[in-house]
Amino acid sequence: MSSDKYLGVDIGGTKVHLGVVQHGQVVQETRFETPMDAPREVILAELTRQLAPLLTDDVAGIGIGVPGLVDEVNGIVHNVQNIPSWREVHLRQHLAGHFEQPVYMTNDANAFAVGEKMYGQGQPYANLVGLVLGTGLGGGIIINHQVYGGTLASAGEFGSVPYLDKTLEDYCSGKFFAQRTGRPGTEWYARARRGDAEALAMYAEFGWHLGQALHIILYALAPEAVILGGSVSKGFEYFRSSLHESLAAFPFKQVTERLVVAPSALGNAAVLGAAALCHMKQLTSHHPALAS
């Protein structure tokens, strides 16, 4: 593992998390609230101001995860959830010009998958999917050791796939608990930890639906591993059995027998993933064989 430091940036709709990453660990970090309703120039200026103290001479580059459509080639953010003014922001040009550092960008779910590949449980696998089970359902794809973003980093949006009467996101994210009961997933998680029978039944149903989502992912991509992140993944022990029961109906047994499904063990996954994107891109540029 390289000893270089990378700066990971997780841009969210309500907050921005910055972290200096070395040896797969966040060694310095800061957070600030996203000025959601401000003009794009104000948000860019605040981001630049917050980045400056972290960009010491030994930082080798900046990696950024954004919850929206991202032109990875040209470094343009086309939209960010909950930030109306960020509809066509030339973020790489702005930051690279200001700090004279290489800047790499992708969707936040893709960054999560890269973080698992570089620093987490995805390290042994050439092909994996990172699923973020939070307020929504997002996915990042690693193919042959490299992140695959597709057009505008939008590949892996499995949550939008039609399923039953709605979409996979309605059954395989925090929306499942909120829409079914009117109470948040955090409440159901707390009840499940106490052994509450109703909560355990809810998680069992959730796991069955998530298994059906994995059917779709297996048909399309056949990854070696699926790593689960996001707040809902904390309840993995409560839906593990039903997920595997759902997977048992998949017709290609040799595929499911080899499949690894596990929750992420990374702390600060979003920032680590953003930094890992920078690390991965620089490794590829220095060793082109890694991309083949």
Score class of each variant (00 low, 15 high):
Ser2Arg: 03
Ser2His: 09
Ser3Lys: 10
Gly12Cys: 11
Gly12Glu: 15
Leu18Trp: 14
Val20Lys: 01
Gln22Arg: 13
Gln22Asp: 07
Gly24Asn: 05
Gln25Ile: 06
Val27Phe: 02
Glu29Ser: 12
Asp37Glu: 10
Glu41Pro: 12
Thr48Asp: 07
Thr48Asn: 06
Gln50Ile: 00
Leu54Gly: 00
Asp58Gly: 02
Ile64Lys: 03
Leu69Trp: 09
Val70Ser: 07
Asp71Ile: 04
Glu72Ile: 13
Glu72Val: 13
Val73Trp: 07
Asn74Leu: 10
Ile76Leu: 07
Ile76Thr: 00
Val80Met: 00
Val80Cys: 02
Asn82Lys: 07
Asn82Tyr: 05
Ile83Tyr: 00
Gln93Gly: 08
Gln93Ser: 14
Leu95Gln: 06
Ala96Gln: 15
His98Glu: 12
Phe99Asn: 03
Tyr104Arg: 06
Asn107Gly: 05
Asn110Met: 09
Phe112Gln: 09
Met118His: 15
Leu128Val: 12
Val132Glu: 00
Val132Ala: 01
Leu133Asn: 00
Ile142Leu: 04
Gln146Cys: 12
Gln146Asn: 09
Tyr148Gln: 11
Thr151Glu: 15
Gly156Trp: 07
Glu157Met: 14
Gly159Met: 09
Leu164Gln: 04
Cys172Ile: 04
Gly174Leu: 12
Lys175Asn: 01
Phe176Ala: 03
Phe176Met: 08
Phe177Gly: 02
Thr181Phe: 14
Gly182Cys: 06
Gly182Ser: 07
Arg183Cys: 07
Arg183Leu: 13
Pro184Phe: 08
Gly185Val: 08
Thr186Met: 11
Arg191Trp: 03
Gly195Asn: 04
Tyr203Asp: 01
Ala204Met: 11
Trp208Ser: 06
Gly211Asn: 01
Gln212Phe: 12
Gln212Arg: 08
Tyr219His: 07
Leu221Glu: 08
Ala222Gly: 01
Pro223Asp: 08
Pro223His: 02
Ala225Asn: 05
Leu228Cys: 04
Leu228Ser: 04
Leu243Met: 10
Leu247Ser: 01
Ala248Cys: 14
Pro251Asp: 03
Thr256Leu: 02
Glu257Arg: 06
Arg258Leu: 08
Val260Arg: 05
Val260Ile: 12
Val260Lys: 10
Ala262Gly: 06
Pro263Gln: 04
Pro263Ile: 04
Ala265Met: 14
His279Trp: 15
Lys281Ala: 09
Ser285Gly: 00
His286Phe: 11
